[in-house]
Simulated scan of single mutants.
Amino acid sequence: MTVTRLLIIGPPGAGKGTQASKIAEAYGVPAISTGDIFRANIKGGTELGQRVQAIIEAGELVPDTLTNEIVQDRLQQEDAAGGFLLDGYPRNVEQVHALDGMIEGDALDAVVLLEADTDEVVARLLKRAEIEGRADDTEEVIRHRQDVYAEQTAPLIELFTERGILVSVDGLGGIDEVAERIAVALSAKLGR
């Protein structure tokens, strides 16, 4: 059985969630989003959800130790035995090292970097905020999230480039157009 371990990264609003489900389907692996796991636990009122909700309500980031624990638990589930596609994790170099330990030295096969022009992404997110009634998604807030992403992710991009597993793809355009670019890039990288 071929095990496929993938990660998708890119700025908020670049379409990672949409593309993650397409990639996961193409490779027959689960798409694992830490944000989705957090939201599901909060909605379900689990002990984990209550801990995460308290952290978020305090305006803090969920600490690495808790995030690592959640991801490790999820990767041990049966459906992830043949691989996975991570979305939203790892977010920093420390989490990359934690992930390396979780998958027992079996490195990620490829990291898809969805590249997108900041102004385009901000416009996309402002439109989504308007449609979904997200009053707190102001241009200032969205641009701040873009800056935080750029600051946190630059070291990851460098690390994955050094490991020779980064695949950069233009994330702007129609959903199917971007999905095709990703499929071609991953096929070339993975040889399948």
Rank of each mutant, 00 (worst) to 15 (best):
R128S: 07
A26Q: 07
A185I: 08
V71W: 05
A188H: 06
V148D: 07
A54D: 12
I56T: 12
T65P: 02
G101Y: 03
R5N: 11
L66I: 15
A58Q: 10
A154G: 10
K43G: 08
G171K: 11
T161L: 11
I157K: 15
F38D: 08
G45V: 13
T153E: 13
V112P: 06
V169L: 09
A183E: 07
D36W: 10
G174A: 06
G15F: 00
L6D: 01
D147G: 14
P12H: 02
A58T: 07
A188E: 12
A81M: 07
R39I: 09
I42L: 09
E120H: 11
R124E: 04
A98Q: 14
Y149G: 10
F84Q: 09
R143C: 01
G15Y: 00
G173P: 02
K43A: 15
T4V: 15
I56M: 15
I55A: 08
D109A: 02
G15R: 00
Y27F: 14
E140D: 12
T65K: 14
Q95V: 14
V121I: 13
G49W: 12
Q152V: 07
L172Q: 14
A24N: 01
D136T: 10
D109H: 14
I131V: 15
G105D: 08
I9Q: 05
A40F: 10
A179N: 05
E120R: 02
I32D: 02
I103D: 11
